[in-house]
């Protein structure tokens, strides 16, 4: 029998705590596959966020540090400066990265810190039960925007990749969506490119993944994937915003 979907070596053989249909699991697998293919597992140090992925260190088979809420890029900076020949990546949600940790991510990118950030934009605070995130869509209902996000009071959603693309230190920036197989393949390519950017010492790399939170969106997994495609993609355009070669590819 041909094995079609083998567990990547960089992932532990254990079930995750993620809700059914949540894209955190897919993203873990994509990162692990890239680590396998590049043969860098033993040289990689991950940094886990505060958010649903706080337990990422339980699932990856590599050294890990757990960081305070939003501080993963600073922690990763400390690690990378001590271990410049290792691969260092952060795995962060949108509350973690785009709200409480805005300063840390902007300055890591500004310094061209040679690390990779995997950024999970699910337009909500998953772990704490579905509060409004800075990335929450206009009109989207959450426990703290019960009438829908109103731009007059809560502003408009942050486009992280666009914001970071103004910084010279950002070597590779891409936004991908996890709503169908074709896009998932593209997502993996982007993650690979981000790690390659780090390998070549080109500077800061980040991949934003438009993700789902079926539980707090109050949808089934398929509805959630459709919602990413029809509501998030138009506001958060997919593509490469910065590449080490220069120029974008949107």
């Amino acid at each position: 029998m041909k094995v079609v979907a083998k567990r990547p070596e960089s992932l532990m053989d254990k079930p995750t705590h993620y809700c059914p249909g949540c894209t955190h699991g897919i993203t873990h697998r994509l990162v692990a596959e890239v680590m396998d293919e590049m043969g860098i597992r033993e040289k990689t140090v991950g940094v886990a966020p505060v958010g649903c992925a706080v337990l990422a260190y339980e699932y990856f088979d590599c050294d890990f540090q757990q960081a305070a809420h939003g501080r993963a890029p600073a922690v990763a900076t400390g690690i990378k400066r001590v271990l410049p020949d290792n691969f260092v990546f952060t795995y962060q949600g949108d509350g973690d990265l785009a709200s409480i940790g805005t300063a840390e991510i902007v300055h890591a990118a500004m310094r061209g810190e040679n690390i990779t950030t995997i950024f999970i934009n699910n337009a909500i605070y998953g772990m704490t039960g579905g509060q409004m995130a800075p990335t929450t869509m206009i009109g989207q209902k959450t426990t703290t925007s019960p009438y829908g996000r109103d731009s007059k009071s809560a502003g408009n959603p942050i486009r992280v990749v666009e914001m970071l693309s103004t910084l010279e230190g950002s070597a590779y920036l891409a936004r991908v969506g996890l709503f169908n197989n074709k896009e998932i393949k593209k997502a993996k390519k982007a993650i690979r490119k981000a790690f390659e950017t780090q390998k070549e010492g080109k500077g800061f790399s980040l991949v934003e993944l438009l993700s789902t939170c079926p539980t707090n969106w109050g949808m089934n997994p398929n509805e959630a994937l459709d919602w990413v495609k029809s509501n998030m993609v138009p506001y958060y355009p997919l593509g490469e915003y910065r590449t080490p070669e220069g120029g974008d590819n949107k």
């Binding site: 305070a68 600073a74 922690v75 900076t77 400390g78 001590v82 840390e104």
Partner: peptide, 12 residues
């Protein structure tokens, strides 16, 4: 950020 860099470096 500084103390969290210390955290990362110490952990390394």
């Amino acid at each position: 950020a500084a103390i969290n860099m210390v955290y990362g470096a110490a952990g390394a």
